[in-house]
């Protein structure tokens, strides 16, 4: 099966600094991928490369096997993009924005967009600038979805929304995933929102990939263990260690067969499953230390 998104040693340099380097990932079709990382990690750069807004300095990006960075009409039609702060032409009405969508996209489904926005109670004759932030986000999402893209890219879609708008937006997005079988790449630094929404995780930091995998696999492959500090040095696969005077908390990468840990560990060690947020933060902290 071809990957929905495939990058190969992808790199992007701005001036003398690399925003993204040596990024090789392969995201399966149908996945909802959370792209996570601190500000400046290279999330937006990666997304702009996928959307064809940037040309890579090195490496390649493929969307369903076809080059995405060519900037051709076909490549653009395959990817839907909702940019940060979901920009719209504020002076246009919603209906005019949909007309624009149809004028600029060959597969644009205006009826679908009108139906979805109608169901959300968003008036088509209202100017975009007069809509609430949540409604603007919904219009931007409707524009991107009505393109009938194979890959939908969303840059911090939830960041500027209040909790209700956030839930509504996520619900629309998830319904679209269920109905249109679109693959989603979604960046966020609000990790708590992601667990129910995403099934795959891609952690970026300082332009490099820290972690990449299905969320369930990743969680199953890690354990939080706590035990005597003097024995902490013997534990293999430590991602992050927090030591107090006589006692250590370790986040350990165990591999999917978690039993392997039991042989190594002294019985005094206690083992807990690890949460997504805890795990992501551990990886980001670790990279801050090792750098």
């Amino acid at each position: 099966m071809t990957a929905a998104l495939e990058t190969e040693r992808l790199g992007m340099r701005f001036g003398r600094s690399w925003a993204l380097r040596d990024c090789t990932v392969s995201l399966p079709a149908g996945a909802v991928v959370a792209l996570v990382g601190p500000n400046g990690a290279g999330k937006t750069t990666l997304m702009n490369l996928v959307c064809g807004l940037l040309r890579p300095t090195e490496g390649r990006v493929r969307v369903f096997g076809e080059d995405a960075d060519s900037g051709s009409a076909e490549a653009l039609a395959r990817v839907g993009f909702v940019a940060q702060e979901h920009p719209l032409y504020r002076g246009m009405t919603v209906a005019e924005l949909l007309r624009m969508g149809r004028a600029l996209n060959p597969r644009f489904d205006r009826n679908l967009a009108e139906m979805r926005l109608g169901a959300l109670g968003i008036p088509l004759d209202r100017r975009a600038g007069a809509l609430s932030g949540g409604q603007q986000a919904q219009v931007a999402l409707a524009l991107a979805l009505s393109k009938r893209p194979e890959l939908l890219v969303l840059d911090e879609p939830l960041a500027s929304l209040d909790p209700v708008a956030r839930r509504d937006f996520t619900r629309t997005l998830m319904s679209a995933v269920a109905e249109d079988e679109v693959t989603v790449l979604l960046s966020s630094h609000v990790i708590a929102d992601l667990e129910a929404v995403c099934d795959r995780l891609l952690v970026l930091d300082h332009g490099t990939v820290r972690l990449d995998g299905a969320i369930d696999d990743v969680l199953a492959a890690h354990r939080m263990i706590s035990g005597p500090r003097e024995a902490a040095a013997d534990v293999p696969g430590v991602v992050r260690a927090v030591h107090s005077e006589r006692h250590s908390d370790l986040l350990v990468r165990t591999g999917v067969e978690a039993e392997s840990l039991q042989h190594v560990l002294h019985p005094t060690w206690q083992e807990h499953p690890v949460g997504l947020e805890e795990l992501i933060l551990a990886y980001l902290e670790q990279s801050a230390v090792t750098r």
Binding site: G52, L53, G71, A73, P87, M100, G101, L104, R107
Partner: peptide, 17 residues
């Protein structure tokens, strides 16, 4: 200024055209 370039150039018309 309004950020709409990210909307305009990710429609299916290449930005050069």
């Amino acid at each position: 200024e309004q950020g709409t370039w990210r909307l305009a150039w990710t429609q299916s018309v290449p930005r050069g055209r």
